[in-house]
Write a protein that binds this DNA or RNA. Sequence first.
DNA 1: AATTAGCACTCGCCGGGTGAGAGTGCTAAC
DNA 2: GTTAGCACTCTCACCCGGCGAGTGCTAATT
Lengths: 338, 338
Amino acid sequence: MLTKRREQLLRFIVDEYVRSAQPVASSAVVRRYGLPVSSATIRNEMARLEEDGYIVQPHTSAGRIPSDRGYRYYVEALMRPQEPPVAVQQTIRHQFHQAAGETAEWAQLAAAVLAARLSYVSVVTAPHAARPRLRRLQLVSVHDFVALLVLVLNETLVLQHTLMLDRQLSQDELNEVAARLNSLYAGRAVDEIRAMQIEHLSLEAQTVRAALDLMESEGAESFGEAYLEGLREMLREPEFAQGERMLALMELLGRPNLAKAIPLARAGHQEVTAIIGSEHPDDAMQQCSIVISRYGGPSSLRGTISVVGPTRMHYPKAVSMVRYISGIMEELLDAYFG
Amino acid sequence: MLTKRREQLLRFIVDEYVRSAQPVASSAVVRRYGLPVSSATIRNEMARLEEDGYIVQPHTSAGRIPSDRGYRYYVEALMRPQEPPVAVQQTIRHQFHQAAGETAEWAQLAAAVLAARLSYVSVVTAPHAARPRLRRLQLVSVHDFVALLVLVLNETLVLQHTLMLDRQLSQDELNEVAARLNSLYAGRAVDEIRAMQIEHLSLEAQTVRAALDLMESEGAESFGEAYLEGLREMLREPEFAQGERMLALMELLGRPNLAKAIPLARAGHQEVTAIIGSEHPDDAMQQCSIVISRYGGPSSLRGTISVVGPTRMHYPKAVSMVRYISGIMEELLDAYFG
DNA sequence: AATTAGCACTCGCCGGGTGAGAGTGCTAAC
DNA sequence: GTTAGCACTCTCACCCGGCGAGTGCTAATT
């Protein structure tokens, strides 16, 4: 346990380092903090904090910067999350108000807002149903040999897929097929439909296969439908100034690697979780922190919302912003599908 | 007009510089090219080429690199486009074979293939109909107060939009509305529908408004539905090694700026066009070249396919690859909607 | 026991200087 | 028109030394 003064000092070092990206010197503390002590005292305290592993020196005769452990302590015990100002809240609410309808659009908007407000990378996975049920399917004739399969799921998700037909079918015929399949399968989940083991022929079989595929891919949370925003903004941070680091980061946040970079499993529901630097299993992420949260009800539509930034991240802002946006997503889901 | 030998020399300088990214020295020419002349002769010829503006020296006592004019001459008169090897062609065809159906998927695939084969940035706009006609619209009930509007256009494009309803409507009622609107508007283009000036109430009006909006946005070629791929690969090129340039490039190729970066108007149909460095109006693109082509029939579905790379680009590969993929897109469109 | 003034010490950064190497342009000879 | 030879130029990498920032330690003070 840290003394009161050391806590204050650690907090100041984190705040100051986050602000300036420069190691914090003892004299800087006295000057800007205005404590009634001298820099020598601060130096002594700093030595203790370093001994305990909360801060480090990049080299002898430089100021101190927080270690991952220091950030952890800061996030856990020191920082006061700052709610976004009312004006900002209103702006954001307004933005979401405009994008009614598509859940995917909400996710995209959430990513955009988050990136814009924080200047870090945001990754938002679109809401997905853990165990989707078929509400109704519909076949729409598109062309002589092409039909569109539209799937409406219980959780108000609409999926579509183009079908290539063996023979020409009129809309009426398609309607018939759809009606028959609906009477069989409406209201059921993937596993139930599979369990029924009904044999179908030609178009029916093709439709059922496509529908099951779609529902299954919906059931699994994936990064295929994730929205990533703000790479450009984040690359302006001084820690990524060298091309070397930039490339590494881009590599890491590219589609195929995204799953490795962001451990969805660590996202808690309701509460916001931070993963700081070396706490992340992947070596490439040692310089980065993640602030992540799940949104949506436990049973119905769920998704995750996360921010990836340098360990020198503005945690109060990041945490509260993620919490706020996460809350909005929850509200939206509730309002539309509650 | 250049002498035969100077042409050869220019070609070699371009080839070599593209390969090595290093200024080409006179001695290197003799060594690797094996001409029965000495480096002094090459130096004399180089001096002439420089005088005429085809090559430049980064500084005294460095080799030569091609100027934009030099590249232009090379592209116009010197290079022989190399068809992709048969094996590669087959692989690509196979990839496209797998992605049947959605035109947007073709575009995405085209972008991915192009980026993978060339290691430059590829930008492909999805096929869009210049003057789309409504084939049929359909309303699908999704939720109590939510319906999905599905628009099938003559050119086999499917668009969808979620509608928020004022009151609860059954699928039967929705079908009725759709049927009425179809009987009125099927087969017509945006301008025709507008010209009819029919007054509608509530849901009908809402549907028509949404449908017109969708069709209009489809009619305009935009970067909203453009697929961009390969930024990571391209940033490995030595000219972008400094973080400075990387950021500039990313800035430039970000969504809002994409239209400024890629002048779609300069894309010719059938033939592939190159825009080299300073030929581009925007200052930020001086270091880059664009290889661009339009695909699709002149009347029906069209799109553009382009590659953005450093001016030190492998033009033969880029041009022939763009041409090849462009051809495939054309074939696909023909096969499905011809 | 905690604080502080003073001071020596360490280390990164910056500017200049230097030497090697690469490649040219020029001149004079072929 | 071509070529050998050579002086010249420019970059790059390296080293060096001074400067400034900031520390750690010691001894004195409260």
